[in-house]
Nucleic acid binder design. Sequence first.
DNA 1: GTAATAAGTTAGAGCAATCTAACAATATAG
DNA 2: CTATATTGTTAGATTGCTCTAACTTATTAC
Lengths: 223, 223
Amino acid sequence: MNSLTEENYLKALYTLADLKGEANVNDLSKHLGIKMPTVTSMMKKLASKHLVHYESYKPLRLTENGKKEAALIVRKHRLTEMYLVEKMGFGWEQVHEIAEQIEHIQSPDFFEKMDELLGFPKLDPHGSPIPDKNGETVWQSYEKLSNCMSGDTVKIAAVINTSGDFLTFLNTREISLGLQLQIISIESFDQSMTVNFENHTNEMLSSTVCERLLVEKISSIPQ
Amino acid sequence: MNSLTEENYLKALYTLADLKGEANVNDLSKHLGIKMPTVTSMMKKLASKHLVHYESYKPLRLTENGKKEAALIVRKHRLTEMYLVEKMGFGWEQVHEIAEQIEHIQSPDFFEKMDELLGFPKLDPHGSPIPDKNGETVWQSYEKLSNCMSGDTVKIAAVINTSGDFLTFLNTREISLGLQLQIISIESFDQSMTVNFENHTNEMLSSTVCERLLVEKISSIPQ
DNA sequence: GTAATAAGTTAGAGCAATCTAACAATATAG
DNA sequence: CTATATTGTTAGATTGCTCTAACTTATTAC
């Protein structure tokens, strides 16, 4: 059994690897708000438990086993988020913090019940996939809005980095999953986009926002 | 903010005091499965936080503040148990362990939402009162079945010590809260009771069982 | 290709929570 | 009322997770 602390390192490693392909000590340190020497020693500990491949000065990699353990924590996190939104009436911006705690509950029954009551969902409220009981994830091939071209029509499929602030920002703009929009223009100097929503109003989205929105392409203007 | 460990000591003190009026280091030690010296040092720590009145060799007492903190943890525990039974379909024998973990979740919103969804219940699935947001508890004046007399008709109102084994035992006998029974006879040598259930079958209940069932008196035969 | 910067490691310390061993106070039994 | 048993405390060690300070390796800039 892994401690709560170990679980947090595993999950961080898992999500960082997802995000940028690999993770190093410094990334992990910043992500967890824990100093590098502490991270190094925890990596040695996790290596001795065969959860992480660790070699001095090399990038960190989860073992197959480590990946699975991490995925199962992510599974608990995302199932919880879905449950909080669907069954308890929380907003998508409120659930991350609570799920961050509940993901450490040790009770297979509890999460199976959630899964069942939710009808075995595949995605969480932010559009992220929920790993299955074996830790396997079916990744949707979404694209960042920031990678799309002027003229493209897309549907918002998921958000990256589910911080409360960002989600509250989306709420005030009434931007939610499933919303369609067309890219009117892209400012070349700051990569901000002017987009047109379903309701025919135009709005400006900063590049930071566009970086964090994953979309499904509906149609594009041929070059 | 109190640590998870501190919370467990506070809750233990609270329930022990409830059960037997006061608690000493040895009780707490046995109840928590932690050695006495560890308990002593934690008591000093909690005393320094003004949660416990501690004097060497004297019985332990929660301060008003300590009582409130403890009651609020018990509140979270019992609300959770109720939620698990009422909204998620767990059996009353399954919920204790899960609630033991969820009671430490730090999120007022989460428990308020539960309370709301449950319609502000006053009792948990085992018949124990749920303290209010100020930590106040309205104690029902139930009696132990073991204190009742031959001929009494009573209704089961609550169970003491909600261990899974005991509750499973009650399940197999189809004994649940609200069930009425009449005491036919009491064996004088072991205090076991022969009782008659609503469905007109007679059954024998050991004194251990009778000690753990709290009842409301419906009628009794005058002496 | 060296100098400067960034990233990573080692050594050593601190705190929280636990333990054991030894000693001290209180309660109980005769 | 003493002897014994129970309960409680003190002292000191251990483990898990964290830190800072000092040093090493790798990367980047010019």
